[in-house]
Nucleic acid binder design. Structure first.
Lengths: 240, 240
DNA sequence: GCGCTGCCTTGATCCATGTCAAGACGTTCC
DNA sequence: GGAACGTCTTGACATGGATCAAGGCAGCGC
């Protein structure tokens, strides 16, 4: 079932769900055809590593569907998730053959891959893709630095609210403003804790507090209803 | 005096102290001449802003001498330094006309500037510079993510040690291994605190503890002698 | 010298978040 | 159904680092 869906995608970039947001978004027809010609799909089941830190990594990829995390771990096992990768996000680094992070599939993952060498050749000749890549890199850098503000300065409650709003913004939502927003959290409590520089207990407690304060409803632990986003945003009015 | 030194630099990239590490490092003779032709120098006195968040920024630049910080501030005044910029580091973002961070001169600063438009045109035609820029962006991204591990997972003591080792690595040192290493801290206690996600008191206390433990000597608050780097590194053996 | 200023250090106390422990809830497998 | 497992929640307690407060010290102007 999953495979047949992957096969569908192989046949047709035009219907690819991330066609207009991924690395290929800015390519003209010719560049697009070239990308199309060298791409191949890969599935990674939930929980499995896409790549490990220090490992050789000869592909770059876009996420077509699913969620992955970037993380680093200390020798004694403390882990920090340094990025949450959602559909259209880019994996890998042209010009570098070894992986700086652990990349882990959080859900089943479909990747649109390119051999790194071929991709490197291509960007030399495709100014659209090249520019897009530079823009992606700088956007990621801005995001990482914004996350540094979160990790260094915000309280546990503010961190949780920031995370919820991040998920809201990355969700494809019916833009009926003022409607209650419903989101599915892409990460477990444990992964949220690691992403936010907290413990799992603190995450759980703060979620409960937000619920008791009427700012969110928890249909299940992972499915959150936000009756009024603006009321949630008040929690961040001093932060950022 | 400062101005005459700046004037010297204007006349001669060949003797520029960051010639082989900055954005111009990978350029061939022709590209180098083009960069040379459009560059101009700018001095910023210590304490002054180079650019403010949200402000229009029509130049990109390399730091020739001095130290600057990138920072973000919350509405209620909590600040996180997201980057420390030393000589050869790059400022600005091609393809984006507004500044995402506050950039502040920590010491007197000499910048080698390019008008952004001219620079953008140039990188389209200069593959060496273009590649170098992409590499710089990805290196900065790796550094930012490593700093996220520090902010999210490390103890105050580990943070201080990490910072000291960062300064050691960025200092141009006589590589007589096993010699006591001497460093001048580029940041005040306050700036260190903000960079490490701590308070100034905690920074001060941890520095004192490291001194009492014989791992560092403080000739002045800013001048640190590390009798044995390997002994300091033991403090990090569980971290990263 | 002397007072002022900015920066740093130190001490006493507090509190947000971590740690430890127990139990609740949902899912799967038999 | 119910046992077993993973995930999440909640409570009691501990603590690392924040906060509040005082004082030290070097540089500078007069």
């Amino acid at each position: 079932m999953k495979i047949s869906r992957t096969e569908d995608l192989r046949l047709d970039c035009q219907h690819c769900p991330v066609r207009h947001r991924a690395i290929c978004a800015a390519s003209d027809d010719e560049q697009f055809d070239r990308l199309n010609a060298i791409k191949f799909y890969k599935s990674v089941p939930a929980g499995q590593a896409v790549a490990l830190r220090g490992e050789r990594l000869d592909v770059v990829a876009s996420i077509v569907s699913g969620v992955a995390t970037l993380s680093k771990t200390t020798v004694d096992g403390r882990m920090q998730i340094t990025g949450m990768l959602l559909p259209s996000d880019f994996i890998g680094r042209p010009g570098r053959d070894c992986c700086e992070h652990d990349i882990t599939a959080v859900t089943d993952l479909t990747l649109c891959c390119f051999r790194r060498r071929q991709f490197e050749d291509l960007i030399e000749r495709a100014p659209g893709i090249r520019k897009r890549l530079l823009d992606i890199a700088f956007d990621e850098l801005d995001a990482a630095r914004n996350w540094m503000l979160l990790l260094g300065c915000l309280t546990a409650r503010e961190k949780i609210v920031s995370f919820l709003m991040l998920v809201v913004h990355r969700s494809v939502l019916p833009e009926d403003a003022d409607q209650p927003v419903q989101i599915d959290l892409p990460l477990s409590r444990e992964a949220m804790a690691s992403y936010l520089g907290l413990t799992i207990e603190t995450v759980s407690r703060q979620m409960s507090r937000l619920r008791k304060d009427g700012l969110i409803e928890l249909e299940t632990a992972r499915h959150v209803i936000i009756p009024d986003t603006s009321r949630l945003l008040v929690e961040l009015e001093n932060a950022d």
